[in-house]
Nucleic acid binder design. Structure first.
Lengths: 215, 215
DNA sequence: GCGCTATACAGGAAAAACCCTGTTTTTCAT
DNA sequence: ATGAAAAACAGGGTTTTTCCTGTATAGCGC
C-alpha cells in the first residue's frame, strides 16, 4: 500500500487527482491527508503515519510550496516530495531541486505520467523528465562566455531592486539603504545592464516576473 | 444523457474533472470533447452534436476564456457556458457575466458543488452562488458617492497603461497612440489620481496586479 | 607588494518625468 | 440645439531619472 499526502490549494484539483490516482493506479494507494497549503500540511502530517510521497503545489496562500518543502526537509527529511505545478520557470525548478525534491511535474501532463512519476519516486527515489533536463540546460546557458552569471543578483542589488518597485525616489532609496544617491545611481546603471532593461519600469517588471517582489 | 464540453489547458485538471464528473454525477453524462484552449474548442465543437454545457477556464494560452466565450456567443449562442477558474477578480466575473455566461465557479470548491452547478445550468439555465453575489456587491461599492466609477478604465486609458508598462518614453507612447505628448501627460496625471499611485512604477505594478498586462 | 576586482562615491549635464494652470474641440444627453 | 462633461492639447516650470567619465578604498590571489 502506497501512502500519499496531497498539498494543493484548489479543492477541485485535489479531488480530481485523487480520483485519477485511485482509478488509474495499478498499485493500491491510500490518500493519507489533503492540505490546502503548508500550514495545513504541518497540522496534518503528524496525525498519520509518514506518507511514502507528498505531492506538492507551489503557488498556495499562507504558506507556499518553497516554505513547505523547506520545513519538510528539516522535520521529515526522509519523505520524498513530488512537485506538481503549472509553474515551469527555470528558477522555480532549480530552487526546488536544490531543496532536494524528488520529482517535478507539470500539471499539463497525462494522468499516466503522474502515475509513472508516483511509482518512480516510491521505487527508484526520483523522477526527472526530459522537460527538467531541458530547463536545467537552458539555465546553464544563462552564463555568458566569460562564465559569469548573468542574472543572480547579490544581496544589495536585490534589496535595491525591491525598493525600486515602489514609489520612493532613488534619493529616498539611497537614504533607506544608507548609501549615497550616487552609489544608488551606480546600482541602477549596473542593473539596467545586467537585466537588459532601459528604465525603472523595466526593473519593476523584471522583479515581478522573477518573484523578487510579490504583488 | 448530459453532453459536456471541457475547455482547460491543464491536462491533469481536465482528466481529474472528468473522473470526478463520471464518478459523482447521478445523471449519466458524456464528455463530448476536451480542448486545451479556444482554438481547439473551435476545431472540436463542430465535430460532435452541440454540448449541453461547456465548462471553461479563463487563463489559457493562444486563445483565452474571454475570446472563447465571445466566439461561442456569436457562433453557438444557445450553448450555456459554466466558467470554472481560479481567477476570482471582480473584473473577470463582471466581464464574463456581461458576455452572458450561465455560471461562475471557483476551482476551490468541493466536487459536489461542481455537480450541482452542472445540473443547475442544464436544468434551470444558470447557477450563481453567494460568492458571485458578493463580488457583484463589492463591485457596485467601487463607485464613489457621486456615482462615478473609481476604477474602470476606458479604452484609451487602458491602452496607455499597457504602453506605460514598457520601455517607451511618454513621448514615444504619444506617437504610438497618435496623440500629443501633452495629452499623454494628462493621461498619466489622471491615472496617478485614479489608481492612487505616485509614479510610473506604480502604474506598471497596478497593471500587472489587475492583469491589464501579462508578464 | 602588485595587480585585479568589487564597492562606494562625485561632478556635470541632458533627457525624461512630473505637475501646475488654462484653452480648444468633441461628445453626448436632454 | 445647446449646455455640460470629457478628451485633446499647450506653456512653462520643477524634480527626477538617466548617462557620461573619473576617483578612492577594501579585499583577495599569488
Amino acid at each position: 500500500m502506497l501512502h500519499i499526502g496531497l498539498v494543493d490549494d484548489h479543492t477541485l484539483f485535489r479531488k480530481g487527482i485523487i480520483s485519477l490516482i485511485e482509478m488509474a493506479c495499478t498499485q493500491p494507494v491510500q490518500i493519507l491527508f489533503e492540505a490546502a497549503n503548508g500550514l495545513e500540511l504541518q497540522a496534518l502530517i503528524g496525525s498519520a503515519t509518514a506518507p511514502d510521497i507528498i505531492i506538492m503545489d507551489i503557488n498556495m496562500p499562507d504558506m507556499n510550496g518553497f516554505d513547505s518543502v523547506l520545513w519538510l526537509k528539516e522535520t521529515y527529511p526522509a519523505v520524498p516530495v513530488l512537485v506538481l505545478t503549472m509553474m515551469d520557470k527555470e528558477e522555480y525548478i532549480i530552487r526546488m531541486l536544490k531543496m532536494g525534491i524528488k520529482g517535478y511535474l507539470s500539471k499539463d501532463v497525462e494522468p499516466k505520467e503522474l502515475g509513472e512519476a508516483i511509482h518512480a519516486v516510491s521505487n527508484n527515489g526520483y523522477y526527472y523528465t526530459d522537460f527538467i533536463t531541458g530547463k536545467l540546460i537552458s539555465t546553464l546557458q544563462q552564463y555568458d562566455e566569460h562564465g559569469r552569471s548573468l542574472s543572480p543578483l547579490n544581496e544589495r542589488e536585490t534589496e535595491f531592486l525591491r525598493l525600486a518597485c515602489s514609489e520612493y525616489t532613488y534619493y529616498e532609496i539611497a537614504a533607506l539603504m544608507h548609501l549615497s544617491p550616487k552609489t544608488v545611481d551606480g546600482y541602477r546603471k549596473a542593473l539596467f545592464e545586467k537585466l537588459s532593461v532601459k528604465n525603472r519600469v523595466g526593473l519593476a517588471l523584471y522583479a515581478v516576473k522573477h518573484d523578487i517582489v510579490k504583488l
